[in-house]
């Protein structure tokens, strides 16, 4: 039963084998796929818009396609249309989902479950079916108009094929995601923090602006940046529900690529979209990087 505290007489045994980076092998395939079919084409098409074939057959730097885009009234109108739609939809998404998220956080009634199920329901509806449903519902002579007229409200103007068409469609589409992120942020606020604010006499509005909104700042940032990217790059909803002139960048790029058959101009349009979205992309990457850094520290 010898027990000694000094163990230095023992020669240290052989070095511990370090873990070899087999992990790199495991992730090689998806990384290769992402690099060769996402990052590479994006960079190539951006590069391709300024390294252009000259009339004499040689290649050289040219910004002609950009000059065309920014001097073409139709292109600029489409860009403005896209910005307007994106901003309006984003504001409406927050305006609709923030009250729902707050309600879900603080209400425990059966009604809350009903509200939650309905608000998240669009997640299970594919885009093509949403589009079809909205056309049949709010299109001219659709169910909504019929219902309104049945209760004596006439003069319904259908948003279908107007700038509001894509706004409504994208609002439908992006609602569940926005709500999920906001509820996740909201559930992280301890009830005691809000009760304490109430205790010191803060009004509900005060609590909203001084406690809730600052606490869900990161969720709002993620929602805003991702929604901006998602809405700005939309093609399908505007194509199906929106007007044709001016149109959003999505359908515009699509038409330039497949109907006008001008891939160079389409790539230029895509590059301009990339550039305009890079700020939102950066904000998103920064917020997830910060969150992952926190996780690593933990």
């Amino acid at each position: 039963m010898a027990d000694t505290l000094q163990g230095s007489t023992v020669t240290p045994s052989k070095a511990v084998p370090k873990g070899r980076p087999y992990g790199l092998l495991f992730i090689a395939l998806p990384v290769a796929l992402i690099v060769s079919f996402l990052f590479f084409p994006a960079l190539k098409s951006i590069f391709g818009t300024i390294w252009v074939k000259q009339p004499d057959g040689s290649y050289g730097v040219s910004i002609a396609t950009y000059q065309f885009f920014f001097s073409d009234a139709y292109s600029l109108a489409n860009l403005a249309q896209t910005l307007w739609t994106t901003v309006v939809t984003m504001v409406m998404l927050i305006a609709v989902n923030l009250p729902i998220a707050i309600y879900l956080r603080f209400s425990k009634s059966k009604l809350a479950i009903f509200v939650q199920v309905l608000a998240l329901f669009p997640m299970f509806v594919p885009g093509i079916i949403i589009v079809y449903a909205l056309i049949r519902y709010m299109g001219p002579n659709g169910l909504l108009q019929t219902l309104l007229e049945a209760v004596g409200i006439f003069g319904f103007q259908s948003p279908y094929l107007t700038p509001w068409g894509p706004v409504i469609g994208m609002l439908w589409d992006a609602m569940p995601f926005t709500l999920l992120v906001l509820t996740a942020g909201m559930s992280a606020i301890p009830t005691s923090a809000i009760e304490a604010a109430e205790d010191v006499g803060a009004s509900p509005m005060r609590i909203l602006f001084s406690i809730i909104l600052p606490q869900i700042k990161n969720s709002l940032l993620v929602v805003t940046s991702l929604n901006f990217l998602g809405l700005f790059g939309q093609a399908f909803m505007p194509f199906m529900l929106g007007p044709t002139s001016p149109e959003m960048m999505g359908p515009f790029m699509l038409r330039t690529f497949s109907s006008v058959r001008d891939p160079l101009q389409a790539a230029t349009q895509a590059t301009i979209v990339f550039a305009l979205c890079s700020l939102a992309g950066l904000a998103y990457v920064r917020s997830i990087a910060r969150r992952r850094a926190q996780e690593v520290v933990k």
Binding site: L229, G230, G233, A267, Y284
Partner: peptide
């Protein structure tokens, strides 16, 4: 972090 449809175009 990229606008989806612009990626698809490229």
């Amino acid at each position: 972090a990229f606008p989806r449809f612009a990626l698809i175009i490229s």
